[in-house]
Simulated assay, not measured.
Amino acid sequence: MPTLLHLDASARSTSFSRRLGARFAEGWRAAHPGAGYVHRDLAADPVPFIGEAWTELCDEVMRRRITDLRRYAEVVQTPAQQAAWAVVAPLLDELLAADVVLVATPMYNFSVPAVLKAWIDQVTFPRMSLAGTRFVVVCARGGTYLPGTPRAPVEHATTYLRDFFDGHFAVTDVDVVAAELVNSLVDPLLADRRGEHDASLAAAEAEIDRLVATSTAAVA
C-alpha cells in the first residue's frame, strides 16, 4: 500500500495552509484505506538546524561517491556525527518510505518558513534522487503572486520548492496549489479584495479534490 508523508509548516495552529493540507490528506486517506500515513508538524515539533557535523557527513558521502540513500549511515564516525545522524535518520526514513509527500506551507516574507527549510536541509544529501516520489505543495499567501501580477517575481515559496525538488531530488511530479490574498480577512487595505480571496480558496479546494481523484484513478 502507498504511504503519505504530510508536513505542516505554518506557525498558526489554524491556518489556510493547514486547512488545505488537511483536505488533501483526508481525501487521500479515504481513497486509500489502510495506506500508510505519517504527519509531521514542523512548527509544533521543529527539527534543529544543521551543524558542522552534518556538513562532515555530506562531505564523506561525496568522497565515497555513495548514491544509495540507505548507505548514508556508513559514513558516520565521530560522536558529533552520530548525534547529527540521530536527527537525520528518522526524518530520512520517513521521506524514503513515502510514495506521496504533502507539503502544507504558508509563504512568509516571500519564502518558506524556516522550520520547513530546516527539514529540507536535514534530509538533503549529495547525489540523492527521489525520482518516482510524488510531491504535492499546498500554500497560502497573504497577497497575490500569480503569474502576471506585480509581485509574481518575488514569489520564492512554491517556485523555490518546485525548483528544489526538480533540481536536487530529480522529482518532476510536483503539484502546486495556492490560496491567494488571505490577508484580506485581516488587513483593511485589502478588504475590498475579499471576493478574490474567496474565489482563490474555492479554486484551491476544487484543485485539491481533483488531485485526490487523480491519485485514486492512478492506483485503480
Rank of each mutant, 00 (worst) to 15 (best):
G51R: 05
D68I: 00
T55D: 14
I66F: 09
A31N: 04
F24K: 02
A213D: 08
R71F: 09
L42F: 13
G142S: 09
G195W: 02
A31Q: 05
R18W: 06
S10N: 09
L4C: 11
G195Q: 00
I208W: 13
F169S: 04
C139W: 05
G143H: 13
S111D: 08
F110E: 05
H39W: 09
A80G: 08
D68K: 00
G34V: 00
N109K: 01
M1Q: 13
L211D: 08
D99C: 01
M128D: 05
M62G: 04
V112D: 05
A9Y: 14
D41G: 10
G27F: 12
T67N: 06
A202C: 03
V219L: 12
E74V: 04
G142R: 01
V138G: 02
T14S: 12
F135R: 00
F169W: 15
L185V: 10
F169E: 06
A83L: 07
A89R: 08
T144C: 13
A220Y: 09
R29G: 11
M1D: 14
D209I: 06
T159R: 14
L91H: 05
E205D: 11
H6R: 02
A199N: 09
L57M: 15
S13N: 04
T14K: 09
M62I: 08
A199E: 14
D166Y: 13
Q77M: 04
L69M: 09
W54P: 09
D8M: 01
R194N: 03
